[in-house]
Design a binder for these strands. Structure first.
Lengths: 155, 155
DNA sequence: GTAGATGCAAAATGTTTGCTCTAAT
DNA sequence: ATTAGAGCAAACATTTTGCATCTAC
């Protein structure tokens, strides 16, 4: 996800507009939660988001964070990632994309490839299942988590 | 997953053999847990498995089910699915395959398509990420969960 | 002013763990 | 006999919920 100031500003503007169109109140809490997601490519979980906002907004409660994320998801403002089973992670990038999932540090990295836009799926093998979308996780090791040198190279 | 008696028998035989090779004790609990997974294409969660075995083995505890599933996963005897974020689901099908995920009834259906064996990924877009495997979820509505007729067809 | 949002605390859910006793090899 | 496994209950982590108060519109 592009996290340049300009891209973040763009996302925020679209967010404000969609909230207006949906009739959702633009509270400071909601704005803060969205801002964390819009400016962060690491796909934080609810607790992460809470911890980042809390210092500057001590009244914030974790329940509000959960309720707000659920609300955003329902309205298609963000999406929920199911990469690990212990907690949900969230994504403000609405472009068609997929994810690289590092099994060591649990980093989740956005990944875009036009060739994955349409999957070459044989309709007959679907057996009546109606496909609405697809998620692809490439599972492995991120650049930081790979052994830098082969162990035998040390001397 | 093929759940014909012959296919189940095959899986069980392979399981017993691998347990022996790994030095894992073949307790009645472990066998029961594996049998549930080997004969069931619905990818049950830990609690489901527990509920199915408990009547015929009243001494079974839920903790044992969790510990056993974890053990099986560590040794590559089963895999863990992250399709929904509230609980892990498990899969005894070790063939290279993917999943259809019904958002309505939460069914998870095995799905095999040779054209998805290798993904057409541009290495440059991976930015140093080392891919070890990939998971594909086709998200949508299973045959049972689709509106049978268009609503307007009623009269 | 009012509907809807927040904060707080309790509860629900899914999962893990320590310890003792049991059973498989 | 020895070591690993099972059962039980307590602990833990994450998420949801009820209710009183507050605030964006």
């Amino acid at each position: 996800m592009d996290t340049s100031p300009a891209a973040i500003e763009m996302r925020l503007a679209a967010f404000r507009q969609r909230c207006g169109a949906l009739g959702l109140a633009l509270t400071p809490q909601r704005l803060a939660i969205y801002q964390v997601l819009a400016g962060d490519a690491s796909h934080p979980g609810a607790e992460d988001i809470y911890r980042r906002i809390k210092p500057g907004m001590p009244s914030l409660s974790l329940g509000t964070v959960y309720r707000t994320l659920e609300l955003f998801e329902e309205h298609g403002l963000i999406s929920r990632l199911h990469a690990f089973s212990d907690q949900s992670r969230f994504d403000a990038n609405l472009d068609d994309h997929h994810h690289l999932v590092c099994v060591r540090c649990r980093r989740i990295i956005d990944f875009q490839d036009d060739r994955l836009r349409e999957l070459p799926v044989e309709p007959a093998s679907l057996d009546g299942f109606q496909v609405l979308g697809h998620r692809i996780h490439l599972v492995g090791l991120c650049a930081e988590c790979q052994p830098e040198h082969s162990p035998a190279a040390r001397s």
